[in-house]
Each structure stands twice: as C-alpha cells, then as structure tokens.
Amino acid sequence: MEYEIKPAGRLTLNLPELWDFRELIYFFTWRDIKIKYKQTFLGGMWALLQPFLLMVVFTLFFSRGLKISTGNLPYPVFVFPGLLLWNIFSNGVTNSGNSMVNNANIIKKIYFPRLIIPVSSILSTLIDFFIGFLLFIVLLIYYRVPVDPGRLLYAFPASLIIILITTLGVGTLLASLNVKYRDFRYVIPFMVQILLFLTPVIYPVTVVPEGLIRDLFQLNPLAGAISLLRSCFGYDYEVGFHLMGGTALSIILLVAGLVYFRKTEYYFADLA
C-alpha cells in the first residue's frame, strides 16, 4: 500500500476510496440509527407516530377543514407517501447539513473520505421511511385503495432515488457551507419549512394556479418523486417533461453539492 499526501489540488470524486470505506458508511449509519431513539420510552415507535400524527393533523386541517380535493384518493392515503418521502428530504438535509459540524471532533482527529459523514446521515433516515411505509400498507388496506403493482415496481425505487439524489446534493452543499459559515445552522430549519410549503406534499399541485407557476412547482424534483409514488395508488400523474426536468435538476444539485464539498473538504479540519 503506497499513497501520497499532497497539497489540495485536483478535483476527483475518488469513488474507489469511498468503496474501500464502505464499512465505515455502514457503521456511521448504524450509529445514527442506534442513537436516534436511545433513552426514549417509545423507541422505534416514533418512526410510526411522527408521520401518523402529522397525517391526522393535516387530514383535519386540509381535508375536513379546508376541503381540499385530492381526486379519487382519500386525503390520508394522499398525504402519507408524500410525508414519508418529504421526511427523508427534510431530516436528511437537516442531519447532513449539521453533520460535519457535529462530527468535528472526529474530522479533526482522523482521516477518511469526508463524504461518508453526510452520506450516512442521509442513509439513516431511510429506516424511518421503511418503518413508516409499513404503516402506509395498513392504511392502503384500511381504505381499500387499489395498487398498481407494475408501476410500483419501478416508481417506488425511482422516487426514492430522486429524493436521495436531491437530498444528497442539497445536504452536501449545506454541510460544507455550514463548516465555513455557521449561519447555515439557522438557515437550514427555516429553509426546510419554506420548502414544505413550496412542495406539493400536503396539498395537490392542482391548487396552484395553472400556467408557469404550476410548471415551476412541478419541476421541483421532490414534487416529481412524490407524485410518481402517489401515481401507484391511483393518483393522476403523468410521467413526462416535469419528471425529467426535475430529475435533471436534482442531478445538477448533486453535482454542485459534491463539487463544492470536495473543494472545501480539505480545510474542514482547519475550520471546524
């Protein structure tokens, strides 16, 4: 084994190195999952309770209160997959955005590809998604909603991948910015909150006025992924320009995030 330690220079993603450290990705993810519900009475139940309670609240407000129409889908079935995917994004961005600062003591003492930290903090949010999805299956059975299994087979992984790409892009960007400018510690929760309103998670995109504004809303990669998943349960959504555009946007975000992260990671130890 021979390697060189050089001044910061050429920009490479160095995926082989990341692969070498795959066990560390696993351990960091495992740690984040493990400590998430430590010393709580309900433990993993929170992964069920959080989206469930949110669903109940939103159902009361939007469906019963504001009488928002979600087409042929009952509102709880409409909102739940949205919330599950949204939680990957919001928790993922929040966790990874703060991850470099929170793990400063490790970064300052030992070398490993820094990308492992935001990546595993995002991966650890997946467990909540899968637990929540079990509850969603119960919900589907309760409301007797027909499922399109053929569509589910590709829409489920595709929507997850789009969400993960977007989350990783935004997460790594915020993580490296946060190391340098601690302002982002306060920007992140604010940003996530605003985005919840700008993304058709708790309302259908049809409430947005038709035309350019609705197009913009639909170009949001999160909106595309959520709608794609919903479409497996009878939600009216066409795979087309908006989804392509959104996916392209998420890839652009990912590239931007990774490039900026790689460019600044050399100095994390000096700044953190």
Binding site: M1, I5, A269
Partner: peptide, 23 residues
C-alpha cells in the same frame, strides 16, 4: 501525516497505513 489537513506545499510518500494514537 495522518491526512487530517493537507500541507500547503510539499508532499509525503507513505508506503504503509498510518494510524495515530492521538485518535
């Protein structure tokens, strides 16, 4: 040496895994 921070100039060639007990 433990690759936590890069040198500003110069370089190091290492022919083995470096670990440190400061960790």
């Amino acid at each position: 040496l433990s690759r936590i921070t890069p040198p500003t100039t110069g370089g190091i060639v290492s022919r083995g895994r470096i670990a440190s007990l400061l960790e």
